[in-house]
Design a protein around this nucleic acid. Sequence first.
DNA 1: CTGGTTTAC
DNA 2: GTAAACCAG
Length: 268
Amino acid sequence: MKRKPIFTIIAVIIVIGIYSYEYFLDVEEKAEIVKDGKTVKENTNEYFLPTSTTNQVIYHQNYSLSYSEPHEQAEWVAYELKASHLSYTNHKRPYFEIDKAVKTGAAHWRNYKNSGYDRGHLCPAADRRFTKSAHDETFLTSNISPQEHQFNAGVWNRLEQKVRYWAKKNDGVFVVTGGVLEDNLKGIGDESVSVPNQFYKVILDNTNGKIKMLAFLMDHKKSDLPLYKFVVSVDEVETLTGIDFFPELEDSIENRLEASSSYKSWSF
DNA sequence: CTGGTTTAC
DNA sequence: GTAAACCAG
């Protein structure tokens, strides 16, 4: 027995309706960013980089950075920390090298010598231990900032360890970190490397396409306070630094997430 | 883990 | 300059 065409048409419309409903639901809920046909998941390195206020972005093998020549350090260093990146391999600590990719000339490590400040990694060496070359690549002077030892080995170290915890738990996070570079900062060494008064770290998790963010802003001094005390909105860091952190996100999603300083979806 | 300092060649 | 050993939180 033959069906009437009207039923077939209705059936087709229903099927299309369900699919398109799920598709749009998908787009809205998962907030999957599509650019040039690729999703964020497929090439996160490319799509999650912040804007540069200095016009000197450098793409290394395992992290990217925006170098500020007046401050002789990066305004941000960005990288993805996947769970699979976490490794227990020990590598010998190499010497810091001048980053030859910095056209304006990156600072020499001697600026830090006898300055009283640590050569504080922005992209931590412990986040790039999966190969020796990745590890050694963090020992470029474009990846360090003068930090008080009590800060670097203290609250800042605690934050870096927490990021590794989240990377493992969430199967990867995006990390952007740097000092707040402003006018009239104290400088160290012949090249006057600026000593920031504050450091920030912005973290984005895209597990299952559900995007969430977390930002930290810390005064450059030792602290025993719990990490959640340093949570701020991404907007606050953007206002301080002039950096736009996730310009590739769809605006309504970006605006909503960056305005929030809630950390309830993150476990400390 | 975050690092620096000292000593030797 | 380079490399290893040692030190501190």
